[in-house]
Design a protein around this nucleic acid. Sequence first.
DNA 1: TAATTAAATGCAACATTGTTGCACTTGGAA
DNA 2: TTCCAAGTGCAACAATGTTGCATTTAATTA
Lengths: 142, 142
Amino acid sequence: MEELKDLLNQRNLKATPARLQILSLVQNYDGAVPFGEIQSHLGELDRTTIFRTINALLQNGLIHKTQFGNAETYFAMCPKTCSEQGHQHQHVHFKCTNCEVVSCEDLSSNPRIEIPNFQIDKVDIILTGVCNRCLVVQVSVN
Amino acid sequence: MEELKDLLNQRNLKATPARLQILSLVQNYDGAVPFGEIQSHLGELDRTTIFRTINALLQNGLIHKTQFGNAETYFAMCPKTCSEQGHQHQHVHFKCTNCEVVSCEDLSSNPRIEIPNFQIDKVDIILTGVCNRCLVVQVSVN
DNA sequence: TAATTAAATGCAACATTGTTGCACTTGGAA
DNA sequence: TTCCAAGTGCAACAATGTTGCATTTAATTA
Ligand SMILES: [Zn+2]
Ligand SMILES: [Zn+2]
Ligand SMILES: [Zn+2]
Ligand SMILES: [Zn+2]
């Protein structure tokens, strides 16, 4: 908890209870946290505060977000390569249709994404399928 | 317009004015259509009808959608490989930060997306950058 | 430790996207 | 022309997200 406080102060963000609570939830969650989970775990906070807190953490490179279709938005911790200067992620986002967990995953080999005559600045890869844990369970059941 | 009517009837959808108008707009638009454009071009239709029409076209494989961050949802025509059985797209979605146009694009080579011990069922690649048209303009101006 | 202040919060009000139930209308087939 | 399942409009609702303003508080400093 003290290290989260340092993390915030390093980015010139006050270490307020709202920020510590949300950061702590995101850090300790199994996978990326759905927005609804943040809201229900922090019901004592005003909704406006939750949105503003999330935006502050996003803008300062402490957390990032992803979306699957029109469904809920998910939040996860950033690697140390992210800062208020911008986000730098190499990983992809995966949602398991069985356990519903959304996670940040590294690809076994990083794909080369190119479109002829286009300049590509940002690549976002969103995957859906069955995660390793659920596959193991399916195999052991059969 | 008559071919759109056939297209709808092939999928067992009535060729109503709402569907013909929305399909026609999506087909003739430069790139994928933002939801707001659909709404403003079809203001005489009830919003509920617009949503239900879009959902019918999505479910029957006539159009598909994509999203960039939390921003607007975009709609584009489907290739013939899509049907009420499901969507089958190989292309990616690209948004130009200069002209704001969102388009469906083929990659010069299709990447192999793999995560060890995961089963991947659906791959969604969302790109941001500068499109070929805007790059040409920038070069000719300098 | 107490005072100071910029930053953060709570509250109210608002905008947009999206859904559901129900009554009414209509496209397409007989 | 008649018929009816499918489609539409309307009302009401729910969720996400934003803005303005008054109040509170984290961190600095005296
Ligand atoms: Zn980041
Ligand atoms: Zn991530
Ligand atoms: Zn499709
Ligand atoms: Zn597309």
